[in-house]
Amino acid sequence: MSDSPHTPDRTEQRLLDAVKTSLDQSEQTLDGVTLGRLRAARREALGTLTTNHPRRRRRELLGGFAVAATLATLTVSLWILPPAPGDVSGNSLPALEDVALLTDAEELEFYQDLDFYLWLDSNGSDSNKPEPVDSGATERGGQALGGDQQTG
């Protein structure tokens, strides 16, 4: 206790030694149930090492990021790249459908209107002119496109 505010006298030191001895002994008198629960708490804490290890978490994050980046690249490529020559039947569309399902981040409405988007994509590639559409598709498209078709 060299850096304590005062040097204890002999009486005080004897008291402090007795306190320390008693505290040491108290540590040895813990009952079996308490010791068992402490062991269980330790096991549970150490169990998080395997499930929440920072390195593992970083790997998971990087892995997730890589998958997301791949899917995003694939999606953008499918939207931007022109269809293969002579492909007017929309063969790339099932792949687009798969990507959309894999990402699983779109609203349910997107899937409900997917037929219309597929039709719009296949017709839009033939001509820049808007084609007449059936009333059901117009109704859905009007909702999906924010009413552009009503004003255009």
Binding site: L38, A41, E44, A45, T48
Partner: peptide, 16 residues
């Protein structure tokens, strides 16, 4: 017991 468990968890999670 809760305190000890909490302290152990924090140490393992943050500083292992």
């Amino acid at each position: 017991l809760d305190i000890v468990q909490d302290a152990m968890l924090r140490l393992v999670k943050r500083y292992s």
